[in-house]
Write a protein that binds this DNA or RNA. Structure first.
Lengths: 384, 384
DNA sequence: TGATTTTGTTCTGGTCAAGAACAAAATAGG
DNA sequence: CCTATTTTGTTCTTGACCAGAACAAAATCA
């Protein structure tokens, strides 16, 4: 079982660094740049990375040898001079993204660039038991894989779970809507498939997907709020990385206390954001009355103001039925929010609806093994 | 004007790295290790850094040449073998820490290890105007400096301000209790003193001081709540570093919405933590009734539960009058908090009173130029 | 006093990135 | 169609860095 984040222990930030780590860092830098764009020419890589042309040449040779990058000749050459090679992440390496929900589980084959190549939905009329859903995921994976060419290599599996996940070992601590308690899902799925498995909370992975591919692309301080059938979750991007906290449980934004109300949320807590806002039903149908909508907007605005003051983000993203509410009454929500945001953090703050649809969580899950590969290309690629 | 954090632009995390940066990184690693302990032997540095003995030797020679580290022979030699040199941060380099409040301003000379060498309090019966307080700070600095030996070199000035501070250029956006609006304090003090100046919010700097020297030492995920005469502020340590947000305004934890109450805080926001809890008066005297105390504990507990669910910290620290409330009724606050913290983030969570007294903010302020020096030893030391 | 242990120093070797020199591949202009 | 120009890829050299080996120094222990 791998951790879902590059293993940076507390002390390693202060550790010494040698030349090997420089190379690994620079390889990761190139892969990161390539993952942010569909493709880049070598000369663009020289400019973006700040590395010398000769160094880029060596690094690209190594990445091609590792099979992580492919280079082609440019289709068009609008400039003078020798045309630069066009590099992109290899399409011969891919990952699986899995999203486990109560009534279905989606399994997708995802390219290193975050494109969904193929997908399969496992319907679960009954709540999925860990053992049975793992067997079904295993079958889906092997079917999806064999449908592609033999040359396809798989870097790992990322799984989104609606619950609290310990990222260090991929243990599902509690997933109320699946009725899972203390399920060592990552190690079970690793044992079944033989591939490295990375686990994350579904809403947090939605945040990482919005950051990598969606409405929050290009921003490094992001608050993401997601309202789904399993309540309200969230994810926060700090300095370009997901806020994890001590053990990976950070981002439970639905359980902030907002009011004195005795109304309870799915966890039995009263007065929280999740307790106050209507459940996922409202995603399809608008709330009964204008009054009810205004009340929702007021509470959503209060939560937004809290998060703006706490995090001073560039963007606050609303997904799921929260995005629907926002789309219906953008100005009302915004004005309620601005009532209680301090002047400075309110500047340049964007409140937006999340961009991606239902595929966002899958893409976020797939991002876990992709990030692991990018951060440690030599080590990871060796065991592919 | 320098930024109060090492300049890491958004993209530089992915930038290429060359050998020069390796040396700078390793020098910074040694300085960081030394700043965390009073002194370390060379052999301890070898073990902690993971660098080779010969490399440590070269690095220590360079740091001594830069005047940042001094080595002495050990006082006692309990072990067999040749005794290892004892290294510590040089006492010939120091910084100034400044804490501006409405009725006084403290100016302290602080060693690189965070020890207060000398201090001076400027009383301000009237609210301090920026120009006049800067002149007084300048005088205090030159007096404190000349009272020490001529060999003392100053690495910079760190200033704590009770308000919203833009860290990029050290602009005080709004400090209500000082009645300062848009004061370019850092550049003004730089012009007056000729030293690099770093600015920060007072409560945030309290958090960094608790992390570096106080109750949160050794933890890398910390939430710090501070209740003072100027309201309730806070600071959050994420992955060992202060949470700054887009422009450095993050950590305004006193302005989270907690209730439906119409009671307003100092910023005119209703229902916030700061609005709900009594002001600094209660720091000296206990609240009027047991009922009032319980109400405070309930609200403080609600805030703690929100922050635990949001950040999944290892420690939540309470300072100022919030620490007093906690000391009076630790179990009540804790039980109210635990009512609404999810099971996973509640594990291993410590709720503690902040350790340091009134010196914490000064030490946090001094930490700004110290960190800048440590992070870029070659560049910074050259201009001392 | 001599053997042992531990640590500091010096020298050598390997890896890395930068830069210079050169080769390759396109356009622009006659 | 050919040549000059521009831009880019490749190769070679150079300098910086860290690791490891060999050696020297400084303590303890018998």
């Amino acid at each position: 079982m791998k951790t879902s984040a590059p293993k940076i222990s507390v002390t390693s930030q202060t550790l010494g660094r040698n030349n090997d780590q420089v190379r690994e860092h620079n390889l990761a830098a190139i892969l990161t740049l390539l993952s942010q764009s569909k493709s880049l020419t070598r000369s663009e890589l020289v400019e973006l990375s700040g590395l010398n042309r000769s160094t880029i040449s060596v690094l690209m040779t190594e990445l091609q040898a590792l099979g992580l990058v492919s280079e082609t000749s440019p289709d068009e050459t609008p400039n003078k001079g020798r045309p630069s090679f066009v590099a992109s992440l290899s399409s011969e390496v891919a990952v699986f993204g899995v999203n486990v929900e109560s009534s279905f589980t989606d399994v997708c084959l995802v390219s290193l660039r975050g494109e969904i190549i193929a997908s399969h939905r496992i319907a679960t009329p009954e709540l999925p038991a860990p053992e049975s859903i793992i067997a079904q995921i295993k079958d889906a994976i092997s079917n999806l894989k064999s449908a592609q060419g033999d040359t396809l290599r798989i870097a790992g599996i990322g799984v989104a779970v609606p619950g609290q996940v310990r990222v260090a070992d991929g243990q599902v601590r509690l997933a109320p809507h699946l009725q899972w308690v203390e399920v060592p899902f990552a190690s079970m799925l690793e044992a079944a498939t033989g591939m490295p498995v990375f686990l994350g909370n579904n809403a947090s992975l939605g945040a990482t997907a919005e950051h990598a591919f969606g409405a929050a692309k290009g921003y490094d301080e992001v608050v993401y709020l997601y309202g789904g059938t399993s309540g309200i979750g969230g994810g926060v991007i700090v300095r370009g990385e997901l806020l994890r906290g001590a053990a990976g449980y950070a981002g439970e934004l639905g359980h902030v206390v907002l009011s004195d109300s005795s109304r309870e949320d799915y966890s039995g807590f009263h007065g929280t954001l999740e307790a106050a806002l209507d459940r996922g039903d409202s995603e399809s149908s608008p709330p009964a009355s204008a009054e009810a909508l205004e009340n929702q907007c007021r509470l959503l605005g209060a939560a937004i103001s809290s998060f703006a003051n706490i995090f001073n983000p560039q963007v606050i993203l609303l997904g799921g039925f929260l995005g629907s509410i926002f789309a219906q009454a953008e100005e009302v929500v915004t004005s309620f929010a601005l009532e209680r945001i301090l002047g400075a953090p309110a500047e340049n703050l964007k409140i937006m609806r999340a961009e991606l649809g239902s595929t966002q969580i899958i893409k976020g899950a797939a991002g876990l093994p992709i990030s692991a590969l990018i951060q440690a290309p030599k080590a990871s690629s060796a065991v592919l």
